[in-house]
Every structure is written in C-alpha cells, then in structure tokens.
Amino acid sequence: MSAGIPFVKVDVTPDTPAWEAERRLSVGASEVAAVMGLSAYGVTPLDVYRQKMGVDRPFDPVLAWIGHQSEPIIEAWLREFSGLDLDIQPGFMARSVDHPYLHASFDRVNAGPFFPIQMKTAHQYAGHHWDEGIPTDIRVQVQAEMAVSGTPRALVVVWIGGREFRHFWEPRDDRFITNHLLPAVQMFWDGNVRAKVEPPPSTLAEVNAIPTEEAEIELSGEAFDTLERITVLNSDIQAQEAERDALKVALGQYVGAADTLTFEGRKVATWRQQKGRVGLDTKALREAHPDIVREFTTQGAPFRVLRRTKTKEQK
C-alpha cells in the first residue's frame, strides 16, 4: 500500500481456512459490538475470545449463505435505484496499521472518494429495528470499519424482507472511536486474548458452564448484598406466584364453567380447558426396556444451583 494509507490489505478469500486464520490474529469490526457488550444477537466477549482461541461459536450456515448471496443484489440496487453517485468496487480484508489488533472485512468499497460500504439483510418482522436509523451494534461495526479505513464516513445499506431497501450515511465519530472503541478492543486483545485469560461470564448460561470445585470464597460487602438481593427477588417471585394462584381460584369461583369472559359487553379473556400434556413414564420404560432407555438418553449441560444456607447451618 502507498504511504499514508492507515491499513494493510490482507490478501485472502472470504470463508476459506486462510481467511479464518487471519481473523484469529485480531478483532474484526463485526466482533467489536460483542467485545463491548453491545451485541444484538447474544454474542459475548467470551464467545469472541474462544473464537480467537480456535473454538468457534455455532452458526447457521444457511443464514451466512443468504448474506453473501444477497450482496450482489444490494449492489445492483445501489447502482440502479439508490440515486447515489458511486464507484463500487469489491470488498477486502484490511488490518489497521496503528491498531493491528483491529481488522475489518469490507463488503464493498467506493473507489472515489474511498469509503466502506456495509451491506445487511433483515427479516420483514425485524425491519422496525431500522426505523430510527442504523441499529447500535451495526453502528459500532461501521465505526470500527472507519477506524481501520481512516474514512470520514461510511455507507450502510439494508435489504428488508426481500423487497425494501434503505441506505444510511454514518459519519465517523472520532470521540467514540478514541475514547471507547479502541480502548475496549485493545484491553480485550492484550488483557484476554494475548494473555490467554478468559473474559468474565456475561450471561447466566456462561456462569452455569463454569465447573465448580470444593472451595470457599469470602464475599465482599457488595457481593453479599447481591446475594441478599437475589434471595429477596426469589421470595418476591414465590409470593407473587402464590398471590396469582389465589386470585385465579377467586376468579374461577366466580366464572364457573364459562370459557369466555366479558366486561361491559366486550370480550376481555378466554379461560378454556385444554388437553393435558403428554408425558412419558420413564421409570416404567426403564424397567421394561433398559437398553432402549440407555440408547436414547442424553445428558444435559451441567448448571449451577444457588441455595441459601439455613441459619442453623451458618453456626
């Protein structure tokens, strides 16, 4: 690359082993929202860390295929119907020179002036997420792309429900990039990936996946307050469920066998009897056909159960 360009082009073909290997060498723009705890799809910093360590998060290959196959159609719409004066060129992977822990894979780029073009698809029932502009996680991704490309703006195009197209200009936010994005990514890269230290869990599923050991830990005042709050919430839930059930009994005594409830002449609810759930007598099946039970029994993922110690056990 010529002098003054803030990135180096990485010559790899998307979705190949070489491309995947390059992605493990830095944080991608599409991963930055997850690193910052802003993913709209439940991707966590721990997911990104494990990907860098060679353990990929399960993904839907059909959705990935749809995304790639949609790009030529979105490009054609930009050329023929957007009304924008563009010089669209193929995208590529680029790694930042000043911040080599950050890379971006541009869907397309505009040649003159140079800026990245980000292409997205959305289901028709998810189109409302774009009503107020670019969703937060995608804005973070595009800001990361501009941090790599050095451009003052980027173009985002979304194809909604297979028939509606929208485009948005996203201006570069240097304050966000400098004060938030880059420090968060560098801290993750140096403090977690390079140091091989897992980020702390950020979902209950990740907490449940931590194998326990027979050991004690002294709680801080803040941690003990958290435990107390959990206990209170559990009690509130139990009390609310008991109150709900008592109210249902009272209402049931009033309505009797009626299955439709009205108020001031209008229908407000239905309360109909349904068939009971179909169950399996596993005990009887195990006694009658133990081999079948062994063949088709699966072990669920382990999880942790939090139980408060009774007062007499604390002494």
Rank of each mutant, 00 (worst) to 15 (best):
A154Y: 12
D137N: 14
A154D: 08
D173F: 02
T151N: 06
R153P: 00
I177L: 08
T178P: 06
P152R: 04
V158A: 09
V158R: 03
G162S: 04
A154M: 07
L155K: 07
V157P: 08
G161H: 00
V158N: 08
D137V: 05
A144N: 07
R163M: 09
I177N: 06
V140H: 07
E145W: 01
P171V: 03
V140A: 12
F168T: 11
E145G: 05
F176T: 09
V158P: 09
T136R: 14
V158K: 05
V157W: 05
R175K: 13
D173G: 09
F165V: 04
F165L: 08
H180W: 08
V157Y: 04
I134P: 09
G161F: 01
I160Q: 00
I138R: 11
E145C: 13
V148A: 01
I134M: 11
V156H: 07
T151M: 07
R172D: 00
W159L: 12
R172C: 08
G150R: 08
G161V: 02
F176R: 12
F165T: 05
G150I: 05
T178E: 14
P135V: 15
R163I: 07
G161R: 03
T136C: 08
P152C: 02
P171N: 02
V157A: 09
I160D: 00
T136L: 11
R139K: 12
R163K: 15
V156L: 10
R153Q: 14
P135D: 10
E145R: 05
V156M: 05
A144L: 14
T178F: 10
I138F: 15
V142M: 12
P135T: 13
D137M: 08
V148P: 02
G150T: 06
H180T: 13
W169N: 01
V140W: 02
E170W: 03
I138W: 10
R175C: 05
V158D: 04
P135Q: 13
F176A: 10
N179R: 15
V156N: 09
I138Q: 13
R175D: 15
P135G: 14
W159S: 04
W169D: 04
I138S: 08
H180S: 15
A147P: 06
T151Y: 05
D174R: 10
W169C: 00
D174I: 02
A154F: 07
R139T: 10
Q143F: 03
D173M: 05
Q143P: 06
P135A: 13
F176H: 11
V140Q: 09
V158E: 03
A147N: 03
V142S: 10
T136E: 13
E170G: 04
V140F: 04
L155M: 09
T178Y: 08
D137H: 14
A154I: 09
P135K: 12
E164G: 01
W169R: 03
R166E: 04
Q141T: 07
I138L: 12
